[in-house]
Structures are given as structure tokens and as C-alpha cells.
Nucleic acid binder design. Structure first.
Ligand SMILES: [Zn+2]
Ligand SMILES: [Zn+2]
Ligand SMILES: [Zn+2]
Ligand SMILES: [Zn+2]
Lengths: 158, 158
DNA sequence: TTGACGTTGATACTCGGTCTCATTTGGCGG
DNA sequence: CCGCCAAATGAGACCGAGTATCAACGTCAA
């Protein structure tokens, strides 16, 4: 909620761009800002829409292209929701991890790989595969949404 | 490779349809057969194409609809390849599991959830989420493809 | 200044999938 | 066997996300 948080995150994204040799153009800064301002997962259309509401003009292709480079830089990651549709989330580029996503509000948290690595290894060995990549995505109700629901439905008669 | 295997799998799929109250129409049987005949993941377009080669006529929408019900019956599952595109795999409907997919030939194997359940639980607790679903997908090189590669590149100079 | 190169936006296009709607078919009671 | 109705089907329009094309533009260094 505090804007400074987003400013920092915007800066982090911009720096990642520059570090990788991309120009930090106004458009890319804009996308960085929009991305940083999301409290959870988002789509290209979302960004476009929010840009439009702010009266800033940016091409659709440009947004997709920006997301493309941010994805390559692992600053955002594209994930598949249980519904089967896609969404992007901002992401810590520095170490391998997975995502825990609130099915209600869309909030997303990074989850350390932890013991999963060992488990994956084991599966590979058992099946004789040389495993190259894996993907783990967790979906559920975040504490805030759970709290909100409890208030609405106190006690829970189930 | 033995047709009987596929026949059995076809039958299993057809029975799943009937058990769930769907008509086992010729079209659905066809899709079941095509699906059962795949040695790995496939797309709706693949099925259409193979149907066309067999000179059997079936509408595109029908194939999608059949895959839709098979997905609902958990007889097939749709997964997202590392490339970002989608594919379907046949699947054991009877117990929760995940998929291990060969990046080279597309073969897919079911992988028991095993310790993952515990791990998922733990993550939920640590983050305060009530976890509803999770998805794990593993990608790598299957033993057969690995063997084939070894022959081509004996020793491995890396 | 000039040229190379990266970036942009408009637009056309692709691809997977869905929707609509008129027609056909399967299953069933009479 | 007949007739009925719900389920299933196919053709084709439609859709949304993403990509490709291409001409115009910005940046920067020589
Ligand atoms: Zn992340
Ligand atoms: Zn939430
Ligand atoms: Zn293989
Ligand atoms: Zn599982």
C-alpha cells in the first residue's frame, strides 16, 4: 500500500533492464511502474487498461514486448491459473522458487524450492529421467481473504 | 506398441464416459481411440490431423468438446509445456498425481504425489494460506531418448 | 552529420479455443 | 416399429492472447 514500496520495486525492475543492456525507455519504465503497482497477478490487457485509465499512451505490442524481456530477465514470470488462463506475476530473479497464489484476490508470494529439489531428484532417479526443469504452482486462499470471509461468515456452520 | 494395450486404454476411456452418463458415441469412441494411440502428449490439432489421415471425418468443435469432457473426467489432463504451449496427456483418473514429460519425445508418465502433499501443507502453514490445489510438472529426457543420444554422442565430451 | 541499431505503434495475422445455431442422432417409451 | 426429446454434432463466426511485419522514430557513437 505504501507507494515507496512500489517505487523501489519499479527501480529494481528498471535497474534489471539496464544491467542487461536494454534501454530504460519511457515505455519500459511505464510498464515497470504498472507491473510494480500490481498487488498480484496481472495480464497484458490489465496493464493496457490501467495505462489507458492513467491517460498514458502505449502500444499493445510494446506491452507484450516489455513483458517478454521482463520474463527473460526473470523479473516477471508467466503462470497458468487453475482456470487454464495465463497471468504474469512479479518475481525475485535471483533464485529459483515457485509461486503461491490467492485464488480470491490474486496476490502472489514466492515460495522457496526447499525440499522439492530433493524430491524432484528422486523422481528423476526412480523413472530414469534426466530432469531439466520443473514447475510447481500452489493455489489457495490468502490470510487476508480468509479473514475477510470469516467476518462475512462467522463461525462457519459446515 | 502392442495394439492390445491401446485397445484396453480405449476401453477404459469409453467406460469412464459411460460411467459418467455420457453417450459413448462413435465420435467419442474415435477420440478415445486417437487419444489412447498417442505415446505422449498431444494437441487437439494432432487428433484432428490423425483423424484426417485415417479418412475419418470429425468436426473440430467435436474434438474440443470430447477433450473437454475427458478432462472433466480426469481421463486426460492439460499441461503447459516449458515452451508455454499446451498439450494434453492421458492420465489415471483414480488418484492424484503429477506428470513427468520427456522434452524430446513427449512421452509422459504419471508421478505419485508422495511427499509433496506434506511439503505443500507446510508451505500453506508457513504462509498462512489455505491451499486448495497445486500443480507440479517435471520435464526432462526419458531413458529411451537418453539412450538414443548416448549412441549418437558416445562418451560425452562435456 | 550520418549511419547503425534499438524501439515503437499500427495493423495484419496466427492459433487455440469457444459460441451459435441449425441439423442429426441416440435412446426410449408407447 | 414410431415418434419424441435431449444429447451430440458440424460449419462457421467469433474471441483473446500473442506474434510478425514494416515503416517511422530515437539514441548514440563515429
Ligand atoms: Zn517469483
Ligand atoms: Zn487473497
Ligand atoms: Zn523421450
Ligand atoms: Zn500433488
Amino acid at each position: 500500500m505504501r507507494p515507496s514500496i512500489n517505487v523501489n520495486q519499479t527501480e529494481r525492475i528498471v535497474r534489471a533492464l539496464e544491467r542487461a543492456g536494454y534501454q530504460a525507455t519511457p515505455n519500459r519504465r511505464l510498464v515497470a511502474r504498472l507491473v510494480a503497482a500490481t498487488g498480484g497477478h496481472f495480464t497484458a490487457a490489465d496493464l493496457l487498461e490501467r495505462g489507458r485509465r492513467e491517460r498514458v499512451k502505449i502500444g499493445r505490442a510494446t506491452v507484450f514486448r516489455a513483458l517478454e524481456v521482463l520474463t527473460a530477465l526473470r523479473v516477471v514470470e508467466r503462470l497458468e491459473l487453475p482456470s487454464g488462463s495465463h497471468a504474469y506475476v512479479v518475481c525475485d530473479p535471483d533464485e529459483h522458487h515457485h509461486h503461491l497464489v490467492c485464488s480470491n484476490c490474486g496476490r502472489s508470494e514466492d515460495v522457496a524450492d526447499g525440499e522439492l529439489a530433493r524430491l524432484v531428484d528422486e523422481v528423476g532417479r526412480r523413472h530414469g529421467y534426466r530432469i531439466e526443469t520443473h514447475r510447481l504452482e500452489l493455489f489457495g486462499i490468502c490470510p487476508l481473504c480468509a479473514a475477510a470471509t470469516e467476518v462475512t461468515d462467522p463461525g462457519g456452520r459446515a
